[in-house]
Design a protein around this nucleic acid. Structure first.
Length: 581
DNA sequence: GCCGTTTTCGGCCCGACTGTTTTCAGTCG
Protein backbone atom coordinates (compact mmCIF):
# COMPACT_ATOMS: atom_id res chain seq x y z
CA UNK A 1 0.00 0.00 0.00
CA UNK A 2 1.20 3.51 -0.74
CA UNK A 3 2.38 4.86 2.63
CA UNK A 4 1.08 8.32 1.69
CA UNK A 5 -2.48 7.12 1.24
CA UNK A 6 -4.92 9.06 3.38
CA UNK A 7 -7.98 7.50 4.93
CA UNK A 8 -11.50 8.92 4.89
CA UNK A 9 -11.12 10.80 8.17
CA UNK A 10 -7.90 12.48 7.04
CA UNK A 11 -9.39 13.49 3.68
CA UNK A 12 -12.53 14.86 5.36
CA UNK A 13 -10.41 16.85 7.79
CA UNK A 14 -8.51 18.55 4.96
CA UNK A 15 -11.75 19.28 3.09
CA UNK A 16 -13.10 20.98 6.20
CA UNK A 17 -9.93 22.98 6.57
CA UNK A 18 -10.25 24.04 2.94
CA UNK A 19 -13.79 25.19 3.65
CA UNK A 20 -12.52 27.39 6.50
CA UNK A 21 -9.64 28.77 4.44
CA UNK A 22 -12.01 29.63 1.59
CA UNK A 23 -14.22 31.47 4.06
CA UNK A 24 -11.24 33.50 5.26
CA UNK A 25 -10.51 34.33 1.67
CA UNK A 26 -14.09 35.56 1.33
CA UNK A 27 -15.05 32.97 -1.27
CA UNK A 28 -18.62 32.32 -2.39
CA UNK A 29 -20.58 30.75 0.47
CA UNK A 30 -21.94 28.00 -1.77
CA UNK A 31 -18.48 26.97 -2.86
CA UNK A 32 -17.52 26.88 0.81
CA UNK A 33 -20.47 24.66 1.54
CA UNK A 34 -19.58 22.32 -1.31
CA UNK A 35 -16.34 21.46 0.51
CA UNK A 36 -18.22 20.82 3.76
CA UNK A 37 -20.78 18.64 2.02
CA UNK A 38 -17.99 16.69 0.36
CA UNK A 39 -16.38 16.09 3.77
CA UNK A 40 -19.69 14.72 5.07
CA UNK A 41 -20.08 12.58 2.00
CA UNK A 42 -16.60 11.05 2.33
CA UNK A 43 -17.11 10.32 6.04
CA UNK A 44 -20.49 8.73 5.45
CA UNK A 45 -19.68 6.68 2.37
CA UNK A 46 -19.81 2.92 2.65
CA UNK A 47 -17.60 2.15 -0.35
CA UNK A 48 -13.82 1.89 -0.18
CA UNK A 49 -12.39 5.35 -0.88
CA UNK A 50 -9.14 4.03 -2.37
CA UNK A 51 -11.02 1.78 -4.79
CA UNK A 52 -13.31 4.59 -5.95
CA UNK A 53 -10.30 6.78 -6.63
CA UNK A 54 -8.48 4.05 -8.58
CA UNK A 55 -11.55 3.33 -10.65
CA UNK A 56 -12.22 7.05 -11.26
CA UNK A 57 -15.74 6.74 -9.84
CA UNK A 58 -15.66 9.50 -7.21
CA UNK A 59 -18.20 11.58 -9.14
CA UNK A 60 -20.80 8.90 -8.51
CA UNK A 61 -21.06 10.34 -5.00
CA UNK A 62 -23.69 13.09 -4.92
CA UNK A 63 -22.12 16.46 -4.15
CA UNK A 64 -18.80 15.51 -5.70
CA UNK A 65 -18.22 16.82 -9.20
CA UNK A 66 -15.21 17.13 -11.40
CA UNK A 67 -13.32 19.71 -9.33
CA UNK A 68 -13.63 17.96 -6.00
CA UNK A 69 -13.03 14.53 -7.53
CA UNK A 70 -9.68 15.73 -8.87
CA UNK A 71 -8.67 17.24 -5.55
CA UNK A 72 -9.71 14.18 -3.56
CA UNK A 73 -7.86 11.90 -5.98
CA UNK A 74 -4.70 13.94 -5.56
CA UNK A 75 -5.07 13.77 -1.78
CA UNK A 76 -5.66 10.05 -1.66
CA UNK A 77 -2.92 9.08 -4.09
CA UNK A 78 -0.17 11.51 -3.07
CA UNK A 79 -1.06 12.23 0.55
CA UNK A 80 -1.32 15.98 -0.04
CA UNK A 81 -2.92 18.63 -2.17
CA UNK A 82 -1.17 21.54 -3.84
CA UNK A 83 -4.27 23.74 -3.62
CA UNK A 84 -4.45 23.13 0.13
CA UNK A 85 -0.75 23.94 0.69
CA UNK A 86 -1.03 27.18 -1.30
CA UNK A 87 -4.16 28.30 0.48
CA UNK A 88 -2.71 27.54 3.91
CA UNK A 89 0.37 29.62 3.13
CA UNK A 90 -1.79 32.71 2.61
CA UNK A 91 -2.80 32.93 6.28
CA UNK A 92 -1.06 32.72 9.64
CA UNK A 93 -1.53 29.19 10.98
CA UNK A 94 -3.15 30.40 14.23
CA UNK A 95 -6.07 31.97 12.38
CA UNK A 96 -7.81 28.61 11.99
CA UNK A 97 -7.69 28.08 15.76
CA UNK A 98 -9.20 31.54 16.27
CA UNK A 99 -12.22 30.42 14.26
CA UNK A 100 -12.99 27.83 16.93
CA UNK A 101 -13.79 30.60 19.42
CA UNK A 102 -17.50 31.24 19.97
CA UNK A 103 -18.87 34.13 17.87
CA UNK A 104 -15.65 34.27 15.89
CA UNK A 105 -16.21 33.81 12.19
CA UNK A 106 -14.12 34.45 9.10
CA UNK A 107 -15.05 38.14 8.77
CA UNK A 108 -14.07 39.07 12.30
CA UNK A 109 -10.94 36.92 12.22
CA UNK A 110 -9.78 38.55 8.97
CA UNK A 111 -10.49 42.07 10.31
CA UNK A 112 -8.39 41.29 13.37
CA UNK A 113 -5.58 39.97 11.21
CA UNK A 114 -5.71 42.80 8.67
CA UNK A 115 -6.06 45.69 11.08
CA UNK A 116 -4.19 44.46 14.16
CA UNK A 117 -1.98 41.66 12.82
CA UNK A 118 -3.69 39.37 15.31
CA UNK A 119 -3.03 35.90 13.90
CA UNK A 120 -3.49 33.52 16.84
CA UNK A 121 -5.53 33.00 19.98
CA UNK A 122 -2.57 34.20 22.06
CA UNK A 123 -2.28 37.40 19.98
CA UNK A 124 -5.99 37.94 20.33
CA UNK A 125 -5.95 37.59 24.11
CA UNK A 126 -3.15 40.13 24.35
CA UNK A 127 -4.93 42.57 22.02
CA UNK A 128 -8.14 42.32 24.10
CA UNK A 129 -6.32 42.89 27.37
CA UNK A 130 -4.57 45.92 25.94
CA UNK A 131 -7.91 47.32 24.79
CA UNK A 132 -6.88 47.40 21.14
CA UNK A 133 -9.79 45.35 19.86
CA UNK A 134 -12.48 47.78 20.99
CA UNK A 135 -10.95 50.44 18.78
CA UNK A 136 -11.70 48.36 15.72
CA UNK A 137 -14.74 49.13 13.58
CA UNK A 138 -17.52 46.71 14.39
CA UNK A 139 -16.03 45.76 17.75
CA UNK A 140 -16.63 47.33 21.15
CA UNK A 141 -15.94 46.85 24.82
CA UNK A 142 -18.56 44.13 25.06
CA UNK A 143 -17.08 42.15 22.19
CA UNK A 144 -13.71 42.37 23.86
CA UNK A 145 -15.08 40.93 27.10
CA UNK A 146 -16.96 38.20 25.26
CA UNK A 147 -13.88 37.21 23.29
CA UNK A 148 -11.89 36.89 26.53
CA UNK A 149 -14.63 34.70 27.98
CA UNK A 150 -14.59 32.60 24.84
CA UNK A 151 -10.82 32.22 25.03
CA UNK A 152 -11.09 31.01 28.64
CA UNK A 153 -13.69 28.39 27.65
CA UNK A 154 -11.59 27.37 24.66
CA UNK A 155 -8.51 26.92 26.83
CA UNK A 156 -10.40 24.76 29.30
CA UNK A 157 -11.52 22.62 26.38
CA UNK A 158 -7.95 22.45 25.09
CA UNK A 159 -6.96 21.04 28.45
CA UNK A 160 -6.16 17.41 28.78
CA UNK A 161 -9.59 15.86 29.14
CA UNK A 162 -11.27 14.55 26.02
CA UNK A 163 -14.80 13.38 25.34
CA UNK A 164 -15.27 9.68 26.06
CA UNK A 165 -16.92 9.34 22.65
CA UNK A 166 -13.81 10.71 20.91
CA UNK A 167 -11.54 8.32 22.76
CA UNK A 168 -13.43 5.04 22.93
CA UNK A 169 -13.01 3.94 19.28
CA UNK A 170 -9.22 4.30 19.55
CA UNK A 171 -9.22 2.41 22.84
CA UNK A 172 -11.31 -0.41 21.43
CA UNK A 173 -8.98 -0.75 18.46
CA UNK A 174 -6.01 -1.09 20.81
CA UNK A 175 -7.81 -3.61 23.02
CA UNK A 176 -8.49 -5.77 19.99
CA UNK A 177 -4.82 -5.75 19.04
CA UNK A 178 -3.78 -6.57 22.60
CA UNK A 179 -6.20 -9.48 22.88
CA UNK A 180 -4.37 -11.09 20.00
CA UNK A 181 -0.91 -10.38 21.48
CA UNK A 182 1.36 -13.33 22.39
CA UNK A 183 0.35 -15.11 25.61
CA UNK A 184 -2.35 -12.64 26.61
CA UNK A 185 -4.92 -14.01 29.07
CA UNK A 186 -7.03 -10.97 29.99
CA UNK A 187 -7.20 -7.39 28.73
CA UNK A 188 -9.23 -4.45 30.01
CA UNK A 189 -9.33 -0.71 30.01
CA UNK A 190 -9.11 0.81 33.50
CA UNK A 191 -9.52 4.35 34.84
CA UNK A 192 -12.13 6.80 33.64
CA UNK A 193 -12.65 4.94 30.35
CA UNK A 194 -13.82 1.86 32.23
CA UNK A 195 -15.96 3.96 34.57
CA UNK A 196 -17.40 5.55 31.43
CA UNK A 197 -16.78 9.06 32.74
CA UNK A 198 -17.94 11.92 30.50
CA UNK A 199 -14.39 12.96 29.79
CA UNK A 200 -11.07 11.18 29.86
CA UNK A 201 -7.51 12.37 30.59
CA UNK A 202 -4.99 9.63 29.90
CA UNK A 203 -6.07 6.12 29.01
CA UNK A 204 -5.00 3.22 31.27
CA UNK A 205 -4.94 -0.29 29.83
CA UNK A 206 -4.21 -3.52 31.67
CA UNK A 207 -3.26 -6.94 30.35
CA UNK A 208 -2.18 -10.21 31.92
CA UNK A 209 0.33 -12.52 30.30
CA UNK A 210 3.24 -14.73 31.44
CA UNK A 211 5.70 -12.52 29.53
CA UNK A 212 5.16 -8.76 29.44
CA UNK A 213 7.70 -7.87 26.75
CA UNK A 214 5.90 -9.12 23.62
CA UNK A 215 2.61 -7.52 24.75
CA UNK A 216 4.28 -4.16 25.38
CA UNK A 217 5.81 -4.41 21.90
CA UNK A 218 2.35 -4.71 20.39
CA UNK A 219 1.32 -1.35 21.82
CA UNK A 220 4.66 0.29 20.98
CA UNK A 221 4.23 -0.74 17.34
CA UNK A 222 0.48 -0.26 17.04
CA UNK A 223 -0.81 1.74 14.07
CA UNK A 224 -1.71 5.28 15.06
CA UNK A 225 1.10 5.61 17.63
CA UNK A 226 2.78 8.98 17.13
CA UNK A 227 5.40 8.88 19.89
CA UNK A 228 6.76 6.15 22.14
CA UNK A 229 6.95 8.03 25.43
CA UNK A 230 8.53 5.26 27.45
CA UNK A 231 8.84 1.50 27.71
CA UNK A 232 10.10 -0.56 30.64
CA UNK A 233 9.74 -4.17 31.79
CA UNK A 234 6.06 -4.03 32.64
CA UNK A 235 4.83 -0.64 31.41
CA UNK A 236 4.64 1.17 28.13
CA UNK A 237 3.37 4.69 27.37
CA UNK A 238 2.57 6.06 23.95
CA UNK A 239 0.94 9.11 22.46
CA UNK A 240 -1.59 8.42 19.73
CA UNK A 241 -2.00 10.65 16.68
CA UNK A 242 -5.76 10.49 17.01
CA UNK A 243 -7.02 12.97 19.63
CA UNK A 244 -3.45 13.49 20.87
CA UNK A 245 -4.17 10.79 23.40
CA UNK A 246 -1.71 9.31 25.91
CA UNK A 247 -2.13 5.58 26.53
CA UNK A 248 -0.42 3.67 29.36
CA UNK A 249 -0.33 -0.12 29.32
CA UNK A 250 0.62 -2.34 32.25
CA UNK A 251 1.18 -6.05 31.79
CA UNK A 252 1.27 -8.36 34.81
CA UNK A 253 0.83 -12.01 35.80
CA UNK A 254 -2.78 -13.16 35.64
CA UNK A 255 -3.00 -13.80 39.41
CA UNK A 256 -2.47 -10.05 39.99
CA UNK A 257 -4.83 -8.90 37.25
CA UNK A 258 -8.01 -8.49 39.30
CA UNK A 259 -6.52 -6.42 42.11
CA UNK A 260 -4.56 -4.28 39.65
CA UNK A 261 -7.66 -3.75 37.53
CA UNK A 262 -9.62 -2.72 40.60
CA UNK A 263 -6.87 -0.35 41.71
CA UNK A 264 -6.45 1.35 38.35
CA UNK A 265 -10.16 1.58 37.68
CA UNK A 266 -10.71 3.77 40.73
CA UNK A 267 -12.18 6.15 41.30
CA UNK A 268 -9.63 7.15 43.85
CA UNK A 269 -12.32 8.13 46.32
CA UNK A 270 -14.09 4.79 45.96
CA UNK A 271 -10.85 2.90 46.33
CA UNK A 272 -9.68 4.80 49.39
CA UNK A 273 -12.94 3.94 51.17
CA UNK A 274 -12.57 0.25 50.32
CA UNK A 275 -8.99 0.15 51.57
CA UNK A 276 -10.15 1.64 54.86
CA UNK A 277 -12.90 -0.95 55.16
CA UNK A 278 -10.33 -3.66 54.42
CA UNK A 279 -8.08 -2.40 57.21
CA UNK A 280 -10.95 -2.74 59.69
CA UNK A 281 -11.18 -6.39 58.67
CA UNK A 282 -7.43 -6.92 58.91
CA UNK A 283 -6.97 -6.92 55.14
CA UNK A 284 -4.46 -4.85 53.20
CA UNK A 285 -5.87 -4.05 49.77
CA UNK A 286 -3.47 -2.69 47.20
CA UNK A 287 -2.56 -2.75 43.56
CA UNK A 288 -0.51 -5.90 44.29
CA UNK A 289 -3.17 -8.00 45.94
CA UNK A 290 -5.17 -8.53 49.12
CA UNK A 291 -2.96 -9.52 52.04
CA UNK A 292 -3.83 -10.66 55.57
CA UNK A 293 -2.02 -9.18 58.58
CA UNK A 294 0.37 -12.15 58.70
CA UNK A 295 1.37 -11.40 55.14
CA UNK A 296 -0.59 -14.22 53.50
CA UNK A 297 -1.77 -13.24 50.02
CA UNK A 298 -5.37 -14.21 49.34
CA UNK A 299 -6.25 -15.55 45.89
CA UNK A 300 -8.35 -12.98 44.01
CA UNK A 301 -9.69 -14.23 40.68
CA UNK A 302 -11.86 -11.28 39.81
CA UNK A 303 -13.09 -8.02 41.29
CA UNK A 304 -16.20 -9.66 42.70
CA UNK A 305 -13.91 -11.55 45.13
CA UNK A 306 -12.75 -8.23 46.61
CA UNK A 307 -16.29 -6.99 47.28
CA UNK A 308 -17.26 -10.42 48.66
CA UNK A 309 -14.36 -10.30 51.15
CA UNK A 310 -15.62 -6.93 52.33
CA UNK A 311 -19.14 -8.28 52.78
CA UNK A 312 -20.80 -6.12 50.16
CA UNK A 313 -22.45 -6.34 46.75
CA UNK A 314 -20.34 -6.08 43.63
CA UNK A 315 -20.16 -2.46 42.46
CA UNK A 316 -20.11 -1.99 38.65
CA UNK A 317 -17.30 0.32 37.46
CA UNK A 318 -19.72 3.07 36.37
CA UNK A 319 -20.92 3.49 39.95
CA UNK A 320 -17.52 3.68 41.68
CA UNK A 321 -17.51 7.36 42.59
CA UNK A 322 -18.08 7.25 46.37
CA UNK A 323 -21.42 8.89 45.89
CA UNK A 324 -23.44 6.51 48.05
CA UNK A 325 -22.70 3.26 46.20
CA UNK A 326 -20.58 1.88 49.08
CA UNK A 327 -23.32 2.33 51.68
CA UNK A 328 -25.88 0.87 49.31
CA UNK A 329 -23.67 -2.13 48.50
CA UNK A 330 -23.12 -2.82 52.21
CA UNK A 331 -26.87 -2.77 52.82
CA UNK A 332 -27.58 -4.87 49.75
CA UNK A 333 -29.69 -2.20 48.07
CA UNK A 334 -27.52 -1.52 45.06
CA UNK A 335 -29.61 -2.15 41.92
CA UNK A 336 -28.58 -5.44 40.32
CA UNK A 337 -30.52 -4.85 37.12
CA UNK A 338 -28.91 -1.65 35.86
CA UNK A 339 -29.88 -1.08 32.25
CA UNK A 340 -27.43 -2.54 29.74
CA UNK A 341 -26.95 -2.09 26.02
CA UNK A 342 -28.35 -5.58 25.38
CA UNK A 343 -31.61 -4.55 27.08
CA UNK A 344 -32.27 -1.77 24.58
CA UNK A 345 -34.67 -2.81 21.82
CA UNK A 346 -35.16 0.47 20.00
CA UNK A 347 -33.17 3.58 19.27
CA UNK A 348 -34.84 6.87 20.12
CA UNK A 349 -34.30 10.33 18.58
CA UNK A 350 -33.09 9.90 15.00
CA UNK A 351 -32.96 12.30 12.06
CA UNK A 352 -32.74 11.58 8.35
CA UNK A 353 -32.28 13.55 5.14
CA UNK A 354 -35.85 14.75 5.66
CA UNK A 355 -34.36 17.34 8.06
CA UNK A 356 -30.66 17.73 8.91
CA UNK A 357 -29.61 14.06 8.93
CA UNK A 358 -27.12 12.67 6.44
CA UNK A 359 -28.74 9.31 5.65
CA UNK A 360 -32.07 8.33 4.20
CA UNK A 361 -34.79 6.69 6.27
CA UNK A 362 -34.06 3.35 4.67
CA UNK A 363 -30.32 3.65 5.35
CA UNK A 364 -31.03 4.47 8.99
CA UNK A 365 -33.46 1.56 9.24
CA UNK A 366 -30.99 -0.92 7.79
CA UNK A 367 -28.19 0.33 10.05
CA UNK A 368 -30.42 -0.11 13.11
CA UNK A 369 -31.40 -3.56 11.92
CA UNK A 370 -27.71 -4.48 11.54
CA UNK A 371 -27.19 -3.54 15.20
CA UNK A 372 -29.92 -5.98 16.20
CA UNK A 373 -32.41 -3.27 17.14
CA UNK A 374 -36.17 -3.73 16.63
CA UNK A 375 -37.30 -0.16 16.13
CA UNK A 376 -36.10 3.37 15.48
CA UNK A 377 -38.01 6.53 16.26
CA UNK A 378 -37.98 9.01 13.40
CA UNK A 379 -38.05 12.41 15.06
CA UNK A 380 -37.11 15.17 12.65
CA UNK A 381 -36.91 18.82 13.56
CA UNK A 382 -40.07 20.91 13.36
CA UNK A 383 -40.63 24.08 11.37
CA UNK A 384 -39.16 26.55 13.90
CA UNK A 385 -35.76 24.92 13.41
CA UNK A 386 -35.36 26.49 9.97
CA UNK A 387 -31.59 26.09 9.97
CA UNK A 388 -32.00 22.32 10.37
CA UNK A 389 -34.52 21.95 7.60
CA UNK A 390 -37.35 21.54 10.07
CA UNK A 391 -40.51 19.90 8.69
CA UNK A 392 -43.75 21.78 8.12
CA UNK A 393 -46.85 20.07 9.37
CA UNK A 394 -47.69 19.02 5.79
CA UNK A 395 -44.26 17.43 5.23
CA UNK A 396 -44.98 15.07 8.09
CA UNK A 397 -47.85 13.41 6.28
CA UNK A 398 -45.64 12.78 3.25
CA UNK A 399 -42.89 11.42 5.45
CA UNK A 400 -45.28 8.91 6.97
CA UNK A 401 -45.98 7.46 3.51
CA UNK A 402 -42.25 7.01 3.08
CA UNK A 403 -42.03 5.38 6.52
CA UNK A 404 -44.76 2.93 5.53
CA UNK A 405 -42.78 2.05 2.43
CA UNK A 406 -39.51 1.50 4.36
CA UNK A 407 -41.30 -0.52 7.02
CA UNK A 408 -42.53 -2.85 4.32
CA UNK A 409 -39.06 -3.06 2.75
CA UNK A 410 -37.00 -3.68 5.90
CA UNK A 411 -38.35 -6.69 7.79
CA UNK A 412 -37.90 -6.92 11.55
CA UNK A 413 -37.17 -3.23 11.99
CA UNK A 414 -39.97 -0.74 12.53
CA UNK A 415 -39.69 2.98 12.03
CA UNK A 416 -41.92 4.84 14.48
CA UNK A 417 -43.61 8.07 13.42
CA UNK A 418 -42.48 10.80 15.76
CA UNK A 419 -41.28 14.38 15.83
CA UNK A 420 -38.71 16.41 17.74
CA UNK A 421 -40.88 19.45 18.10
CA UNK A 422 -39.39 22.75 19.19
CA UNK A 423 -40.41 24.09 22.57
CA UNK A 424 -41.00 27.75 21.76
CA UNK A 425 -40.13 30.61 24.05
CA UNK A 426 -43.51 30.53 25.78
CA UNK A 427 -43.39 26.78 26.30
CA UNK A 428 -45.90 26.23 23.49
CA UNK A 429 -45.00 23.51 21.00
CA UNK A 430 -44.21 24.26 17.37
CA UNK A 431 -47.05 22.11 15.90
CA UNK A 432 -50.80 22.21 16.41
CA UNK A 433 -52.23 19.62 18.81
CA UNK A 434 -54.21 18.09 15.96
CA UNK A 435 -50.90 17.14 14.31
CA UNK A 436 -49.09 16.10 17.49
CA UNK A 437 -51.89 13.76 18.56
CA UNK A 438 -51.40 11.68 15.42
CA UNK A 439 -47.67 11.13 16.13
CA UNK A 440 -46.61 7.86 17.72
CA UNK A 441 -44.30 9.84 19.98
CA UNK A 442 -43.41 13.49 20.55
CA UNK A 443 -40.04 14.67 21.80
CA UNK A 444 -40.01 18.34 22.80
CA UNK A 445 -36.66 20.14 22.75
CA UNK A 446 -35.29 23.64 23.21
CA UNK A 447 -33.11 24.72 20.28
CA UNK A 448 -33.51 28.47 20.09
CA UNK A 449 -33.49 31.29 22.64
CA UNK A 450 -31.09 29.65 25.10
CA UNK A 451 -30.29 32.91 26.85
CA UNK A 452 -33.30 33.13 29.11
CA UNK A 453 -32.92 33.41 32.85
CA UNK A 454 -33.48 30.49 35.18
CA UNK A 455 -37.03 31.37 36.05
CA UNK A 456 -38.08 31.94 32.44
CA UNK A 457 -36.43 28.75 31.19
CA UNK A 458 -37.89 26.67 34.00
CA UNK A 459 -41.34 28.06 33.25
CA UNK A 460 -40.83 27.37 29.56
CA UNK A 461 -40.22 23.67 30.24
CA UNK A 462 -43.00 23.44 32.83
CA UNK A 463 -45.45 24.99 30.37
CA UNK A 464 -44.39 22.57 27.65
CA UNK A 465 -45.28 19.65 29.92
CA UNK A 466 -48.85 20.94 30.11
CA UNK A 467 -49.29 19.87 26.49
CA UNK A 468 -50.85 16.40 26.79
CA UNK A 469 -49.22 15.19 23.56
CA UNK A 470 -45.64 15.76 24.72
CA UNK A 471 -44.02 12.45 25.69
CA UNK A 472 -40.34 13.18 26.14
CA UNK A 473 -38.21 16.22 26.97
CA UNK A 474 -35.14 16.09 24.69
CA UNK A 475 -31.63 17.05 25.89
CA UNK A 476 -33.18 18.83 28.89
CA UNK A 477 -30.32 21.22 29.74
CA UNK A 478 -28.94 21.98 26.27
CA UNK A 479 -25.31 21.73 27.31
CA UNK A 480 -22.44 20.90 24.95
CA UNK A 481 -19.44 19.73 26.94
CA UNK A 482 -16.47 22.13 26.46
CA UNK A 483 -18.56 24.27 24.08
CA UNK A 484 -21.69 25.59 25.72
CA UNK A 485 -22.87 25.80 29.30
CA UNK A 486 -26.27 24.28 30.09
CA UNK A 487 -29.05 26.83 30.09
CA UNK A 488 -30.09 27.73 33.62
CA UNK A 489 -33.06 25.69 34.77
CA UNK A 490 -34.41 24.48 38.13
CA UNK A 491 -34.07 20.78 37.39
CA UNK A 492 -35.86 19.71 40.60
CA UNK A 493 -38.97 21.58 39.53
CA UNK A 494 -38.82 20.10 36.04
CA UNK A 495 -38.38 16.56 37.36
CA UNK A 496 -41.15 16.99 39.95
CA UNK A 497 -43.56 18.02 37.23
CA UNK A 498 -42.36 15.26 34.90
CA UNK A 499 -43.11 12.75 37.65
CA UNK A 500 -46.53 14.25 38.28
CA UNK A 501 -47.54 14.51 34.62
CA UNK A 502 -45.94 11.33 33.29
CA UNK A 503 -43.41 13.04 31.04
CA UNK A 504 -40.29 11.04 30.21
CA UNK A 505 -36.76 12.45 30.27
CA UNK A 506 -34.26 11.81 27.52
CA UNK A 507 -30.75 10.58 28.29
CA UNK A 508 -29.12 11.84 25.12
CA UNK A 509 -26.04 9.80 24.19
CA UNK A 510 -24.37 12.24 21.82
CA UNK A 511 -20.87 12.39 23.37
CA UNK A 512 -20.82 16.18 23.76
CA UNK A 513 -24.34 16.24 25.22
CA UNK A 514 -24.87 13.37 27.70
CA UNK A 515 -28.00 15.21 28.72
CA UNK A 516 -29.52 14.43 31.18
CA UNK A 517 -26.17 13.90 32.85
CA UNK A 518 -25.68 11.12 35.37
CA UNK A 519 -26.44 13.22 38.48
CA UNK A 520 -29.72 14.37 36.97
CA UNK A 521 -30.58 10.83 35.90
CA UNK A 522 -30.24 9.80 39.52
CA UNK A 523 -32.54 12.60 40.66
CA UNK A 524 -35.05 11.56 38.02
CA UNK A 525 -34.93 7.92 39.06
CA UNK A 526 -35.43 8.87 42.70
CA UNK A 527 -38.63 10.68 41.73
CA UNK A 528 -39.93 7.80 39.65
CA UNK A 529 -39.47 9.64 36.36
CA UNK A 530 -39.09 7.25 33.41
CA UNK A 531 -36.28 7.60 30.89
CA UNK A 532 -35.37 6.84 27.30
CA UNK A 533 -31.77 6.33 26.16
CA UNK A 534 -31.27 8.05 22.82
CA UNK A 535 -28.75 8.38 20.02
CA UNK A 536 -29.64 11.85 18.69
CA UNK A 537 -28.47 10.29 15.43
CA UNK A 538 -27.87 12.45 12.36
CA UNK A 539 -26.11 9.68 10.44
CA UNK A 540 -25.87 5.89 10.57
CA UNK A 541 -22.70 5.86 12.63
CA UNK A 542 -24.38 7.93 15.34
CA UNK A 543 -26.57 4.98 16.32
CA UNK A 544 -23.52 3.97 18.39
CA UNK A 545 -24.27 6.92 20.66
CA UNK A 546 -26.59 4.49 22.44
CA UNK A 547 -23.45 3.15 24.15
CA UNK A 548 -22.92 6.52 25.83
CA UNK A 549 -26.57 7.01 26.67
CA UNK A 550 -26.65 3.63 28.39
CA UNK A 551 -23.40 4.40 30.22
CA UNK A 552 -24.86 7.69 31.47
CA UNK A 553 -28.07 5.99 32.57
CA UNK A 554 -26.06 3.38 34.46
CA UNK A 555 -23.96 6.08 36.13
CA UNK A 556 -27.27 7.52 37.25
CA UNK A 557 -28.31 4.12 38.70
CA UNK A 558 -31.10 3.57 36.18
CA UNK A 559 -32.55 0.07 36.03
CA UNK A 560 -33.80 -1.67 32.97
CA UNK A 561 -37.40 -1.13 34.07
CA UNK A 562 -36.91 2.62 34.21
CA UNK A 563 -35.73 2.88 30.60
CA UNK A 564 -38.73 2.63 28.32
CA UNK A 565 -36.98 1.75 25.08
CA UNK A 566 -36.11 -1.61 26.57
CA UNK A 567 -39.77 -2.43 25.81
CA UNK A 568 -40.99 -3.83 22.47
CA UNK A 569 -42.28 -1.17 20.07
CA UNK A 570 -46.00 -1.51 20.77
CA UNK A 571 -45.57 -1.48 24.52
CA UNK A 572 -43.06 1.35 24.23
CA UNK A 573 -45.65 3.56 22.53
CA UNK A 574 -48.57 2.51 24.70
CA UNK A 575 -46.52 3.08 27.85
CA UNK A 576 -45.42 6.53 26.70
CA UNK A 577 -49.01 7.51 26.00
CA UNK A 578 -50.42 5.73 29.05
CA UNK A 579 -48.12 7.63 31.39
CA UNK A 580 -49.45 11.05 30.41
CA UNK A 581 -51.84 12.71 32.75
C1' DG B 1 -18.01 24.09 -5.71
C1' DC B 2 -22.47 21.23 -7.60
C1' DC B 3 -26.51 20.53 -10.26
C1' DG B 4 -30.43 20.28 -13.97
C1' DT B 5 -38.30 16.79 -16.89
C1' DT B 6 -38.16 24.72 -15.40
C1' DT B 7 -32.13 25.58 -16.40
C1' DT B 8 -25.16 24.30 -19.12
C1' DC B 9 -26.45 29.61 -16.18
C1' DG B 10 -28.20 30.86 -12.18
C1' DG B 11 -29.74 29.01 -8.27
C1' DC B 12 -28.15 26.85 -3.94
C1' DC B 13 -31.32 27.83 3.41
C1' DC B 14 -32.83 31.48 6.31
C1' DG B 15 -34.66 33.74 10.79
C1' DA B 16 -33.18 35.37 15.24
C1' DC B 17 -29.99 37.36 18.09
C1' DT B 18 -26.13 40.37 19.45
C1' DG B 19 -23.55 44.25 19.51
C1' DT B 20 -22.70 47.51 16.93
C1' DT B 21 -24.80 50.79 14.81
C1' DT B 22 -28.44 54.85 13.38
C1' DT B 23 -29.91 50.95 9.52
C1' DC B 24 -26.77 46.75 9.68
C1' DA B 25 -23.01 43.04 9.68
C1' DG B 26 -21.66 38.85 11.48
C1' DT B 27 -22.62 34.55 13.60
C1' DC B 28 -25.28 30.67 14.93
C1' DG B 29 -28.32 26.89 14.78
Amino acid sequence: MNPNTLDKAAVAKILRELSLLLQLKGENAFKVRAYDTAADRILGMTQDLGALVREGRLQELPGIGQGLAEKISELVSTGKLGFHEELKAEFPPGLLEMLQLPDMGPKKAMALWRELQVGSVADLERACREGRVRALKGFGAKSEAKILEGIALHQRAQGKRKLLGDVLPTVEGLLELLRAAPGVVRVSPAGSVRRRAETVGDVDLLASAPQAGPVLDVLANAPGVAVLIGKGESKCSVRMTEADLQVDLRVLPDEDFATALHHFTGSKAHHVRLRGMGQDKGLKISEWGVHQEDGTKLPIRDEADIYRLLGMQYVPPELREDSGEIEAALEGRLPEDLVSLEDVLGVVHCHSTWSDGKNSLEEMARAAQALGLKYLTVTEHSQAAVYAGGLKEDDLKRQWDEIDRVNAAVPGLRLLKGIEVDILESGALDYRDSVLERCELVIGSVHIRHSMNEEQMTQRLLNAMDNPHLNIIGHPTGRLIHEREPYPVRMEAVLDKAAARGVVMEVNGKPARLDLKAEHVRQAVQRGVKLVVSADAHRREDLNHLVFAVATARRGWARKGEVLNTLPADRFISTLKGLRC
